[in-house]
Computed example of a mutant assay.
Amino acid sequence: MTNIIEWDEKYSVDVPELDECRKQLMDMFNSLIEIKTNKGEAKDVVNWVTEINEFSKIFFSKEEKILGRKGYPDLDIHSKAHRRFIKKTIGLRREIAEEVDNLTVEDIVELRDWLIRHFEARDTLFIPFLRIHRYVDECENKK
């Protein structure tokens, strides 16, 4: 299936807890794409969109807490991007509430690709910041 995307280390932020969430979100999108492509049950589509929305909120909250505890300077900008994604998933839920066929595979892929671009462009910006903090914390613990 051409729309399925596999985990790649380039999506990693070097924080195992966050990387696991990323993998899980990608798997959720893959499942939703597969269901839509194979013309699966409408209730399954609705359930997966809801799951993606709810899981995204939890995941983004974890990421923001980690960044907030370390004082990441661009947290506000980063959080706004997360909120835009959540708004888009809520929009998908509204569309399918009216009629599940309103949601196309292209819509799902577009949202998934937004998330991948976010991983590659925005999330990579905080990796050096977190690594420096991890190094400082490790040095402090050695004292």
Rank of each mutant, 00 (worst) to 15 (best):
N3M: 04
N3G: 08
I4V: 11
E6D: 12
D8R: 11
E9Q: 14
K10F: 13
K10N: 15
E17R: 05
L18K: 07
E20Y: 06
Q24V: 11
Q24M: 13
L25F: 02
M28Q: 07
S31K: 14
I33V: 12
E34G: 13
I35M: 05
I35R: 05
G40V: 00
N47H: 14
N47V: 13
V49F: 13
N53V: 06
E54D: 10
E54N: 08
K62G: 05
K65L: 07
L75N: 02
L75G: 03
D76M: 02
I77K: 12
R83N: 05
R84P: 00
F85G: 04
K87Q: 05
K88G: 10
G91Y: 07
R94I: 05
E95M: 15
I96V: 15
E98G: 01
E99A: 10
E99T: 07
L103P: 10
V105C: 02
I108T: 06
I116H: 02
R117L: 10
R117S: 11
H118M: 03
A121Q: 06
L125G: 10
F126D: 00
L130V: 11
R131H: 01
R131D: 07
E138L: 08
E138H: 08
E138C: 04
E138Y: 09
E140Y: 12
K142N: 06
K143G: 03
